[in-house]
Simulated assay, not measured.
Amino acid sequence: MSSAPQNPARQDPHGRQPPAPRPAVVRDALGVGIAVGLSGFAFGVTSAGAGLSLAQTCALSLLVFTGASQFALVGALGAGGSPFAAAAGAFFLGTRNAFYGLKLSHLLKLPAAVRPLAAQWVIDESSAVALAQRDRASARLGFTVTGASLYVLWNLTTLLGAVGASALGDPNAWGLDAAGPAVFLALLAPMVRSRTERAAAALAVLLALGSLPLLPAGVPVLVAALAAPIVLAAGRLAEGGPRPGRGRTQAPQRTRTPEEARTPEETRTPEETPR
């Protein structure tokens, strides 16, 4: 007995996997939004402990809305760093969202009227959920649900953390000051796969730790950014100069036809053959 034919709706003539069901996309997006949004509580406590007012803390979450940059800013200010160094570190970490936006603009193809609003939600988590989808409709759904749930919950928990900071006391005693960087590292770790990426990450850690006791707060994160070009330059030097044969383009040889491959003696006609 032959096996039953597969469901035609599940088959793809190009061999591509079918898109995930909408409930599954919503479930995954909400899971990411809720899990990361709760860490806004740690930011509210840390920001209040660094000396920022309630209005300033809430304004950072409402307007900046990128956790790593927010923690870098208040962490540098709390350590006594200058506002310029703190803002420079936060700005550097936030530039990655611009590259996310370039990728998502081609994937989502949102109308021009909603792009300025959607740009506020271009962060690590919403980009990861959108890029993990297999079609544009699922990517739009995942991006929207992740961005909306995370934005609402992050701002709500930021407010609660800032208000309750006085009751909690020193955030360092609870370890909440490390919650933000820990979340960021947990999101970043799965993306470090190749040998070059691991080398850059290790060198960045060494540069940051080595410059921490020597430079003002907020500057070590800028020094750590030098790890990527250093590793790339070292990799090119390890490969050496151009190999023999490189740099000189040879014209491809044309295959000779059977008539061209014959010798002059073979191509002569009987009349031309000497007697």
Rank of each mutant, 00 (worst) to 15 (best):
C58L: 14
L187G: 07
Q56C: 09
A48G: 14
G142L: 05
G33C: 05
G40I: 02
V163D: 13
A225D: 01
D177E: 11
L93E: 04
R10D: 13
V223K: 05
P111R: 04
S69M: 01
S149I: 07
V122Q: 12
F143Y: 00
D170S: 10
A201V: 06
A85D: 07
Y151G: 06
V74M: 03
G78A: 09
S194V: 10
A234Y: 09
G89V: 01
G245S: 06
L117H: 02
G245C: 06
G147F: 05
I34D: 05
A79H: 11
P264S: 01
Y100L: 02
L108G: 06
G241V: 04
R198N: 04
E272R: 02
T257R: 09
A173Y: 08
N7Y: 02
V152F: 11
S82G: 13
R246F: 11
L54K: 09
Q70A: 03
Q120Y: 06
V36H: 13
S47G: 13
A165H: 09
I230C: 15
A228T: 12
T146E: 01
G164Y: 11
A227W: 04
L102C: 05
R268E: 12
G175S: 07
E271P: 03
L117E: 00
G80E: 00
L93H: 10
A167I: 08
A173H: 14
L104I: 08
V152D: 05
Q253Y: 11
L160I: 01
L54P: 01
V221A: 14
A90T: 06
L60M: 15
P5Y: 03
Q120V: 14
E265Y: 08
A224H: 10
P21F: 12
F71P: 11
R256W: 14
L63D: 12
S53Y: 03
P270H: 07
A201S: 10
E265R: 12
A234K: 00
P252Q: 09
R136H: 06
L215S: 00
P116Y: 00
A118E: 09
G175I: 10
R27E: 07
N172T: 14
L185M: 13
R10M: 13
G31K: 07
G15Y: 15
P220F: 13
N172E: 14
T57I: 03
E260N: 05
G40V: 03
P270I: 02
R140C: 08
R96P: 02
A173Q: 15
G49M: 11
L226E: 09
A76I: 04
G247H: 00
A113N: 11
A202C: 12
V45L: 07
T95P: 03
P216Y: 09
